[in-house]
Design a protein around this nucleic acid. Structure first.
Ligand SMILES: [Zn+2]
Ligand SMILES: [Zn+2]
Ligand SMILES: [Zn+2]
Ligand SMILES: [Zn+2]
Lengths: 132, 132
DNA sequence: TACACAATGTTATATTATAACAATTAACAC
DNA sequence: GTGTTAATTGTTATAATATAACATTGTGTA
């Protein structure tokens, strides 16, 4: 079978919603908001999320248990992700910095382990929150 | 009041256990294993974990919802952490690389956000798992 | 002593995620 | 088209992770 090129119905419903809200959103919040589209159970959401993460359409913000649409057309495979997270307003943005990604892709730890994936989360205060 | 210098009873019990097992361990697994010491409820474990993370004695591996003792005497404050995680055997080790930490501490995103903390998780296969 | 704050104990509940199994749909080879 | 395989869906139940709320006790300090 060829590699999937189109999303399934539930995958598309979930992705549409995540792209629309345009900020990190939690699985059960997605569920509540797509029930009018016919998705009834958590598992239907989680299965769609798994696939969307796998193909790089969305990313999981691990420290927040939340999901966000990919804003970086270069990371189609979800294997090299970096985010900045404001601890004041919880605003999250995906970092797209070629020097950073190059540095991290080439990083070798002392045990010589070869990495195929990384996730980096920076925390701080955004401009708005830091002047409060 | 002076800054806490000694750990409380429950904090010490939980830390002792995490240091003993010497690998990432989950909160409810900790609970089961410290019940003989008198800790009875999840909240007692989570409160101890929160404090231990705060003071840098342990770290949370976000992608695994697990906790591990700090192996890097330099990161007493839990604000700059990096781990390598084997996706085969789930072995986790804390990365201590001064060049990496310097690079990340000084990283500035395009929005000029000032970071005070980061967490980086690398994924791959350890030597043992990669020859299988 | 009185005060402030940290830590504890306890019960209940909220939140996040997966197991198990049956049924349906989509893609492909022939 | 038919048969085959894998992906997807639907459904119920349950597991795993984490916090709310509130009363109580301990600890350092003035
Ligand atoms: Zn991305
Ligand atoms: Zn902010
Ligand atoms: Zn550490
Ligand atoms: Zn391994």
């Amino acid at each position: 079978m060829l590699k999937q090129e189109t999303l399934s119905k539930n995958q598309q419903i979930v992705l549409d919603y995540i792209e629309k809200v345009n900020e990190p959103i939690k699985a059960y919040s997605i569920l509540h908001n797509v029930q009018k589209k016919g998705i009834k159970a958590p598992l239907q959401v989680y299965r769609a999320l798994d696939k969307l993460v796998e193909i790089g359409k969305i990313h999981k913000i691990e420290s927040r248990n939340a999901f966000v649409a990919c804003k970086n057309s270069n990371c189609q495979i979800s294997k090299a992700t970096a985010f900045s997270i404001c601890e004041g307003c919880e605003e999250v943005s995906e970092i797209s910095d070629s020097k950073l990604s190059k540095y991290l892709k080439n990083f070798q730890d002392k045990a010589g382990m070869k990495f195929n994936k990384y996730n980096l989360e920076f925390f701080g205060l955004c401009k708005k929150c830091s002047i409060k």
